[in-house]
Every structure is written in structure tokens, then in C-alpha cells.
């Protein structure tokens, strides 16, 4: 019982999973506290789904241990399963069942009594905003509705930990926003672990991020730190009509500039791709002022968000530099 009250929801130690000779994940170590919303980030094949499958007790690890709410996922898997709500990748549902019928069935399966299951079904139908389709057959629902049914299933037994594997995969922008709002609504009530390969996605919903790459943890830190990394990796693109020499001269003296790449563009314009030092958060206003003072023409000024790959490159470079030292 003492363990149940522990502050830690997930504790992963030296977790390794091998498929034959290939290690899907190797020596993972991370912790998630109660109430946290943590994003597991990484490109396809980084080991996100494998990690979640192990944490949800569906699969056994080759070595290492993982504990959820103080219970070992291998030796006390039923105790763990009582405390989690898991939505696997691609959100599998029984397509021949009706939404309400499915959620009641899942509630009963997760140990709720008939009355309790009906009560929770009413609640999650409202919470996930799917009460308008409660009598529809799941197979006939749109992807967005199905995803919300999947999330409703994950929270039907009011679990301590919710594990969502790629909850926004395959959704259109509107559906993504709805799913994201739903996840935000769950914050505070549950501990949430979300996997995603979209950096922006995780940044919007999570307060801590674990970045996986090739089965290993690249970084495990809070989102604010990630944002500062992203600031360092941010790039600005400006298309300016100006004499090339003057332009080069101006960039050389520009405050906080890290690197410039100038190439000729249509109609005597020059396309400048600029990278800035960490302390510069948004240099666009300064760039605009510079152009106006020189009486040049400006037709594009864009700040590009770093992709996951950019962050990876930045972090790997940082690590290599550390190792060199």
C-alpha cells in the first residue's frame, strides 16, 4: 500500500527489448511523477510503441524493469492493468459494436459493476463529446470520432495513468485540435503518457518530454528546456531586394546572428536563410527595421519552427561536443 501512495507513477530502469538481434529499445531509464503529462517523442522506429507496449503489460521486456504505480509490469501485470487506460497505435476498436455498447463492454471488462459502467459511460460520452454518436456503429464513424471513442475507452475506468500511442495520427487539423483539447481536459485528473513523432504536438500538450532515438533516450527534460533548444535551432527566412554587398555587410553586423546563407531569387531578390544565437528569441522585428532604414524591399519574412530532425541534430551535436571535451 505504501508503494501505491508513492509520488512516482512510472519508473523505468535499464529497460531493453530485443527482436532477435535488433534492439528496439536499449537501457531506457526514466521516471514520471503523478499528475505529469509526459510526451514520448521520436521518429518512426525509435522505440516509442515498444516502450508503451511494455508499460501497458502487453509485451515483456528482454531485460530491465518497469513499474507502474509501484507495481512491476511483468510480475504484477494485472494490478498494473487495473490502473491504466491504454490506447494503442492506430486505435483498434470493435467495428461491429455501437459506441455506447462498446464503452459499457469495456467498462465491465475493466472491472466496473453494471451500474458503475453505465454511469461512467454517460460521463465519458459527455467528456469526450461523443454523446451525439452513442448509438452509431463504430465502423461507420469518422476517424476523429473513432479516436475520441478510443480515448473514452482509455478513461472509462478512471485510471491513474493514461497511455496514448500517437493519439493524433491520421487526423485532419480540426480533429487534431479537438483531440488535443480533450487531452488538455484530462490534465490534472490523470497522469498522461503520450507518444508522438510531431514535436509541435508534444510541445502543446506536455509539460515534460522524453526524446527517443534509435531505442535510446536522447534527452529527458521539461518542455521549457526543449523550447529553448528549439529557439536555438530556429531559422528565419527573409527575401530582400538589395545590393548583394550591402546585404552581406548588414548581416555581418546584425545582432545575435549565427549564420547566413544567401541565394539569388526571382526578380533581383535575395533569399537569406538566417540562424541566430540562443539569446535571440525572435529577430523578425529587427530585420524589418533594418530593411526599412535602408529603403530596401521585403517580400517574405518567416520564422521556421525546427523540425524534430533539427532538434535531434542539435542535441546530437551537443552530445558529441560534450564527449569531445
Amino acid at each position: 500500500m505504501g508503494e501505491e501512495k508513492s509520488d512516482l507513477m512510472i519508473e523505468v530502469k535499464n529497460l531493453t527489448k530485443r527482436y532477435g538481434n535488433v534492439a528496439a529499445i536499449s537501457n531506457l531509464n526514466f521516471r514520471v511523477k503523478r499528475g505529469e503529462v509526459v510526451g514520448l517523442l521520436g521518429p518512426n522506429g525509435a522505440g516509442k510503441s515498444t516502450t508503451l507496449k511494455i508499460l501497458s503489460t502487453f509485451m515483456a521486456a528482454t531485460s530491465g524493469t518497469a513499474r507502474v504505480a509501484g507495481y512491476d509490469v511483468f510480475d504484477q501485470s494485472e494490478e498494473v492493468r487495473r490502473r491504466i487506460g491504454y490506447m494503442p497505435e492506430n486505435n483498434p476498436l470493435n467495428p461491429d459494436m455501437r459506441v455506447r455498447e462498446y464503452l459499457k463492454f469495456r467498462g465491465r471488462l475493466k472491472g466496473l459493476s453494471a451500474v458503475e459502467s453505465r454511469r461512467r459511460t454517460d460521463y465519458v460520452l459527455k467528456e469526450c463529446d461523443i454523446d451525439d454518436v452513442e448509438y452509431k456503429i463504430i465502423g461507420q464513424l469518422s476517424m476523429g470520432y473513432r479516436r475520441r471513442v478510443g480515448i473514452a475507452d482509455a478513461i472509462i475506468n478512471d485510471p491513474e495513468l493514461i497511455i496514448l500511442d500517437e493519439p493524433t495520427l491520421g487526423l485532419d487539423p480540426n480533429q487534431i485540435r479537438t483531440a488535443r483539447n480533450l487531452i488538455k481536459k484530462l490534465q490534472g485528473k490523470h497522469t498522461i503518457l503520450i507518444s508522438s513523432h510531431i514535436l509541435h504536438e508534444v510541445e502543446m500538450t506536455c509539460n515534460r518530454v522524453v526524446i527517443l532515438r534509435q531505442g535510446k533516450i536522447l534527452v529527458s527534460d521539461d518542455t521549457k528546456h526543449l523550447q529553448s533548444i528549439m529557439g536555438q535551432a530556429a531559422r528565419v527566412v527573409a527575401e530582400i531586394k538589395a545590393p548583394l554587398e550591402d546585404l552581406k555587410f548588414c548581416w555581418r553586423d546584425f545582432e545575435g546572428i549565427g549564420g547566413v546563407d544567401i541565394s539569388a531569387s526571382e526578380g533581383d531578390y535575395y533569399r537569406c536563410v538566417l540562424s541566430f544565437k540562443a539569446e535571440i528569441s525572435d529577430p523578425r522585428e529587427d530585420i524589418f527595421r533594418m530593411v526599412r532604414e535602408n529603403n530596401w524591399n521585403l517580400r517574405e519574412l518567416t520564422m521556421q519552427r525546427p523540425s524534430l530532425e533539427d532538434v535531434f541534430m542539435y542535441l546530437t551535436r551537443e552530445k558529441e561536443e560534450e564527449e569531445d571535451l
Binding site: 507496449k53 501497458s56 503489460t57 502487453f58 494485472e78 492493468r81 487495473r82 491504466i84 491504454y86 490506447m87 494503442p88 492506430n90 483498434p92 476498436l93 470493435n94 467495428p95 469495456r106 471488462l109 475493466k110 472491472g111 475507452d153
Partner: peptide, 13 residues
Amino acid sequence: NGTYETLMTAPVN
């Protein structure tokens, strides 16, 4: 259709 995973991660033996 993948429901095996949701079935087996429910607290059933």
C-alpha cells in the same frame, strides 16, 4: 484488427 491488444491490456487473465 488490433483489438487483441486492447483486450489483453484490460485487467483480464
